[in-house]
Design a protein around this nucleic acid. Sequence first.
RNA 1: GCGGAUAUGGCGGAAUUGGCAGACGCGCCAGAUUUAGGAUCUGGUACUGUAAAGUGUGUAGGUUCAAAUCCUAUUAUCCGCACCA
Length: 802
Amino acid sequence: MSYDFKKIEKKWQKIWDDKKVFQAENNSDKPKFYALVEFPYPSGQGLHVGHPRPYTALDIVARKKRMQGYNVLYPMGWDAFGLPTENYAIKTGIHPREVTKRNVAHFKSQLKALGYSFDWSREINTTDPEYYKWTQWIFIQLYKHGLAYKKEFPINFCTNCKVGLANEEVVNGVCEKCGGEVVRKVKNQWMLKITDYAQKLLDDLDTVDYIERVKTSQKNWIGRSEGALIDFPITGTDDFITVYTTRPDTIYGSTYMVVSPEHPIIDKYEHRLKNMDEIRAYKQEAIKKSDFERTEIIKEKTGVKLEGLTAINPISKKEIPVYTSDYVLMTYGTGAIMAVPAHDQRDYEFAKIFNIPIVEVISGGNIEVEAYTDSMNGVAINSPLIEGLKGKDAINHMIEILEERGIGQRKVNYRLRDWVFSRQRYWGEPIPMVYCEHCGWVPVPEEELPIELPDVENYKPADDGESPLANMPQWYNTKCPVCGAEAKRETDTMPQWAGSSWYYLRYTDPDNNEVLAGKDALDYWMNVDWYNGGMEHTTLHLLYSRFWHKFLYDIGVVNTPEPYAKRTSHGMILGDNNEKMSKSRGNVVNPDDVVDEYGADTLRTYEMFIGDFEKAAPWNENGVKGCKRFLDRVYNLTELVADGKGYTPELETYIHQTIKKVTDDIDSMKFNTAIAALMKLANYYYEAKKITKDDIRTFIILLNPMAPHVTEEIWQMMGFEGMLNETSWPVYDISKTVNDTIEIPIQINGKLRAKIVVDKEADADELKAAVFANDVVKKLTDGKMIAKQIYVPGRVYNIVVK
RNA sequence: GCGGAUAUGGCGGAAUUGGCAGACGCGCCAGAUUUAGGAUCUGGUACUGUAAAGUGUGUAGGUUCAAAUCCUAUUAUCCGCACCA
């Protein structure tokens, strides 16, 4: 018989709501537990079948923790600023605020239908002025501490969205959001100095419990490298070109230099350059290309020699030519390199094309064929000052020499660049700054926050790429907060990353009007104990929010140096054809349909049972049916309930094992095997054709975090006291997880040949006797020499015969 | 190119971390029930073989009493970064 999930699920959702059973207390004697999932962007499409996977996972954790006596905060909100809403507004003329309101209402009803134990009294929305007031406040603090600045910056500009993009938002040379062509354009942009925090962001990864691949991607993004700055004198001047290198030990092999096409040295020595036309043409060509195009053409190196300009290798004292080439980027290091063709593959290719001498200075490779780039094993040759030294010794020794002679210094570099924080868009937080002719950039006084978004006629950015706000003099004209003169507001808005960089703080105290969150609330709740989110956010969102948190820590707003104690990541749910779900592939599953046909408990259970939580897994309708069948079987267990205790010792062991298994598996995110263990136990009861009242009680508590509605219903049917979600999580007795007898497999020469059952207390002699009493063992060892016997207690008995 | 991950039945996936490979679910086969379909229940199901037995965790070697698990080489797929000096 199938249970009536439609009735049951609605019923319990209402009871939980009415009784506010999942509200977290800001004052409690219980230990706290803060579980967090990434809040969704409320898109017009509604909930995707991928959303419930992480939400259910941490809902399971949260529900179990509550039953284990924790005061649990499991909040939800809306990351609602963003382009799709704005684009929709452009298309339809409906105000983004209105669109957001509708989408949020839709999302919320969908989430409620899944029975999550969110504390809805703490719901937040990044587009709410009471919320973004504090986003703006943080920006002002950043500005006051010198971490926000405006700068002419060549940015990636999407020709379709007409908006500047962060490097991170350009994917494969096109706009991540719309796929439009991206070109480089110089604009005056607000920047955040995340690079000041590069080392801290790197170091403190050692203090947090993030899954390894997340840590790795954070490290790669920060991209620390150690090396040296070296000055190469320009022939016939007192001037020099400074390069950055990680391999100062190869300096004797530097037979030419390359500067980026944007390097200022070109304009500076324009008068000396004999082929300026050629250089200028090359430069034009390079600047026009986006970063992607420049880096995509890996096939052949191009470049132009700076005729009339040479440099002196400061160690070998040789005069060397200088080239410009787009394989050197202005945005990394100094925008100039000392090229060592023998030991860098890019330089090698370039040197081959331009017929530049290749001088081997590290032995061990074959430079006739390719550059030898191993920095650890080769020995320095043709390098009088460091001859014979190896690896780090050679590098350090050379840096010491450079420093002694005043021509270079040790230097750490990071790939991380400052965060382009401006967007020329409407649907974002206005940047709370005012420009005054006399005072320059001045932050809005804090008591005037929030600076609210005005209503505009048209959401479309101007063709010159300025924000729609730039068409609103009545909004941007204001008085300078310092001198009172006529002044203009900043019309750029913040990127979508802003609101999500601190939202987890607001949940601790969502209604506070005085501060972004009260000190007591922060002291009590921080850090987030467990944060789960998608792999796509493990570099940017995570890095940005750690940066903001560290800044807030430094100015005394929060009391912990890191926001998230633990970070995990879930795999994607793919279509049934094993491809990413998308409309164009026609493999999209709508969670509403699943809830409607099978119920929320089934959807939750299925998404947890689908496979390894961290890996992608394809949707399978039959798998959903299997989970529905399981829940029906659980419901129908009520018909097998018999009175009395009547545990067999075997069954008692089984139950304790299952409690242990489910408890441990939830903590380690192995939800699939936790459910498998419960399925197995249910099968066992069906085989026995009976279940005691105590057993069914334990069973439904264990299943409750995954399938909260049907278990709550069974609880009530069975007449157990109170509500299931308010009862205690079962505790296992470790001594009862072991059977009285154990089965030992016997291997002969490593092959399984027999199994024997012995008492768990049996000593070595008893065991040995039992092993050799076995017929198969007798047969196979009779008349043979026993060379060795290995007994792994409780595991295996292996006999080696000859 | 660099970095990371993965590879196990027809499918999704288990395997106490070196100790019985294939738990659990799907699918499939057979039986029961049903007017039939569906649903449900019971049993079976890695491969070869009637069987005895043998083979088997991408491929090839190795270490070990014992390898999906460790080592070496190699292939494929996916993801991230991508001329980072």
